[in-house]
Nucleic acid binder design. Structure first.
Length: 468
RNA sequence: CGGGGUAUGGCGCAGCCUGGUAGCGCAUCUGCUUUGGGAGCAGAGGGUCGCAGGUUCGAAUCCUGCUGCCCCGACCA
């Protein structure tokens, strides 16, 4: 499967360019001390580009069908995504919790889903022969937590979210982490006294999602989604367009250039939040399941986008589906008990890693958006052992680290070609190339991975550019 | 869950049809040379050929069963 690391990747290398690691920035790293098992050849099992590149860049290792270990580079990206998701959830007023992966079957019997959920649910027994399960989702558990404590409408609205591993025993997992069996999910659950409140809770998540995906460097379009037996129109899938996307989608082109709601939007201002939602649902956008060819035909031909897309988020309102059977009720101002109105809101960070690659790559490898890049800068020493390049790299490495820039220093004793190929593959936004030729003129080369633009700069100018 | 593939050293593959000492490229290790787009030469190590039965003097190769993984479809964040 996964190959041996490239020369020196595993080794605690002899430090030919001895630099104390900047203690204040643990994200600064020397490649000789890192664990980055790059593959030169394409693993045969990987069909789509994100899967291929994640394996080749040493981000993940398959342990079973649809089950992956996250290696250092992949984990860094995953954590950066989580960080942005978390910030935007918090900004919207949601509160983080963490629920277990293993749940008791009893909870699911209360909601009736223990029997309804098919073989996708991984069912297990503990040593006392009690029925347990590895959670495919957490509506029951969050409802149980809510009902244990909340009694009054005065404690509403409430939105609790968590970021946790889930397991769905898919018949055919595929496409790497895009459709794994085990996957990381951010799930938020909102509780409100009535539909009006739930509607605002939904809108808040809608806005938070627009901001989240934009910050991740993606353009996600909210599309009308199937609401199932609940009905209504309160369900949207957030879709990223990509040629390798799994579903066929139809959309108005203008969505691709809409403004993202600002960071300082007041989430308590119902009208303002509603206005954003109204705007982002004003034009046609639907997946093939909900596609209405007649309505799509009304869209001007030049504005019609018919493409493939990846679902990276899904929000929906489901009313009292769980609160009623599980008796999650609060006293309202009328003195009566009301089953709370709920919604749930998912984002798949592990899938997002793949989606980001699908949307950001070229023939040489990944091109990370800066917000999620595992490192901002790759520093390549083209002639390890040469006093001048070693010294120049050590100096740049220390200063970048001190300035708080995530930097990966390729200090391996490798040929230049191998270093260029590695840096292009792992897709760091900036490459700083330090070699004898440039140094003879007092210059280093700074390459932008996305544009390919190269500048020959003094080390000081390069530092200014990268720490700006 | 239906259909189709595949399994040989860390990775990618050949060998199987027609049974007879397990091979190639990359990677790894040692030495020398080399150093601005995945280096060259010389040497070295590493494989119960997915597992279990069977046929045979002899099985990676033929037969039977099982398992893992991949692909297409149906299903799904």
């Amino acid at each position: 499967m996964c190959g041996a690391p490239r020369r020196g990747a595993l080794r605690r290398a002899d430090s030919r360019a001895p630099t104390p690691r900047p203690p204040e920035r643990p994200s600064a790293m020397r490649l000789s001390r890192y664990f980055l098992p790059i593959l030169k050849e394409n693993p045969k099992e990987a069909e789509i580009v994100s899967h291929r590149l994640m394996l080749r860049a040493g981000m993940i290792r398959q342990e079973s069908a649809g089950i992956y270990a996250w290696l250092p580079l992949g984990l860094k990206v995953l954590n950066k995504i989580n960080g942005i998701v978390r910030q935007e959830q918090n900004r919207s007023g949601a509160v983080e919790v963490l629920m277990p992966t293993i749940q008791s079957a009893d909870l699911w019997r209360e909601s009736g889903r223990y029997d309804d959920y098919g073989k996708e649910m991984l069912r297990i027994k503990d040593r006392h022969e009690r029925d347990m399960l590895y959670g495919p989702t957490n509506e029951e558990m969050i409802t149980e937590i809510f009902r244990a404590y909340v009694r009054s409408y005065k404690d509403l609205p409430l939105n609790l979210y968590h970021i946790q591993w889930k397991f769905r025993d898919e018949v055919r997992p595929r496409f790497g982490v895009m459709r794994g069996r085990e996957f990381l999910m951010k799930d938020a659950y909102s509780f409100d006294l009535d539909y009006e409140g739930a509607r605002h809770a939904y809108n808040k998540m809608f806005v938070a999602y627009l901001r989240t995906f934009k910050r991740l460097g993606l353009t996600a379009i909210p599309m009308v989604a199937d609401t199932g037996p609940i009905g209504g129109n309160l369900s949207h899938e957030f879709i990223v367009l990509a040629p390798t996307g799994e579903s066929e989608v139809f959309s108005h082109r203008d969505y691709l250039s809409f403004d993202t709601p600002p960071a300082d939007i007041d989430f308590d201002d119902k009208a303002a939040v509603q206005a954003v939602v109204d705007k982002w649902t004003s034009l046609y956008a639907a997946t093939d399941e909900k596609h209405d060819a007649a309505a799509f035909a009304q869209v001007p031909a030049e504005a019609q986008v018919s493409a493939r897309g990846i679902e990276v988020g899904h929000i929906f309102y489901f009313g009292t589906k769980y609160s009623a059977p599980m008796k999650a009720v609060v006293n309202g101002p009328d003195g009566k008990e009301h089953a709370v109105h709920m919604g749930s809101y998912g984002i798949g960070p592990s899938r997002l890693v793949a989606a980001l690659i699908e949307a950001n790559h070229d023939e040489n490898g990944i091109i990370w958006p800066q917000s999620v890049a595992p490192f901002k800068v790759g520093l390549a020493n083209l002639k390890v052992g040469d006093a001048a390049t070693d010294a120049a790299c050590a100096d740049l490495y220390a200063k970048l680290g001190k300035a708080g820039v995530d930097v990966l220093y390729d200090d391996r004793d490798e040929r230049p070609g191998a270093k260029f190929a590695t840096l292009d593959l792992i897709g760091l936004p900036w490459q700083v190339v330090v070699g004898p030729k440039g140094l003879a003129e007092g210059k280093v080369e700074v390459k932008n991975r996305r544009t390919g633009e190269r500048q020959s700069l003094t080390p000081e100018a390069a530092l200014n550019l990268l720490t700006a």
